[in-house]
């Protein structure tokens, strides 16, 4: 019965978001945290509106985690799954977001990290805080256009 009521309600009362002008849908997007913003791209029109509306994120932290789910500096992330992601999510966010502080912490020299370094230049960033192996950062540093850079240096283990 509960399921039927839910379906009946679904038919009669729902929010017709696509009937709103695109700028109002963009306004709704602007009030969502970034993860909801990404998930709300549930069809072509919303995906296009999301892409065409600029937004500002005060801080974005992207940390590489150990197997125990903590970062090099003990940071406990909001989103943690025992899985690995491609760098596509960063590429998408970089398309239309301005980031106040982008904090990235990478610990090991893998191909993924070269992707990340190359992506950083696509971001509109106020301040970049980078914890990494400095040798890898230098590869893409000259391509970055940022106002301020602070380093968190640590020593690459001897190999």
């Amino acid at each position: 019965i509960a399921k039927k009521r839910r379906i009946d309600r679904k038919c009669e009362d729902y929010f017709p978001i696509l009937s709103l002008p695109s700028e109002l849908i963009g306004l709704v997007f602007s009030f969502l945290p970034i993860e909801d913003r990404m998930r709300l791209r549930v069809n072509k029109k919303l995906n296009a509106i999301e892409l065409n509306s600029k937004y500002f994120v005060e801080k974005l932290h992207i940390f590489e985690l150990s197997n125990k789910g903590v970062s090099h500096r003990g940071f406990n992330p909001r989103h943690y799954k025992k899985t690995s992601y491609s760098s596509d999510f960063m590429r998408r966010i970089a398309m239309n977001a301005s980031i106040g502080i982008l904090e990235i912490e990478l610990n090991s020299p893998k191909e993924f990290h070269y992707d990340v370094y190359n992506l950083i230049k696509n971001f509109n960033i106020g301040t970049l805080k980078f914890g990494c192996i400095i040798r890898l950062l230098l590869i893409s540093l000259k391509k970055m256009h940022i106002n301020c850079l602070s380093f968190s240096l640590y020593i690459e283990p001897m190999s």
């Binding site: 679904k10 017709p16 990404m38 791209r41 549930v42 069809n43 919303l46 989103h79 799954k81 998408r92």
Partner: peptide, 26 residues
């Protein structure tokens, strides 16, 4: 979200795969 807004998925298989790859973290 689809239920609240009553929206059908109109992505092609390729577009959907791309979205899922971008959204894997969230």
């Amino acid at each position: 979200m689809r239920e609240i807004l009553q929206l059908e998925c109109d992505f092609t298989e390729e577009e959907l795969a791309e979205i899922r790859k971008e959204n894997a973290w969230c």
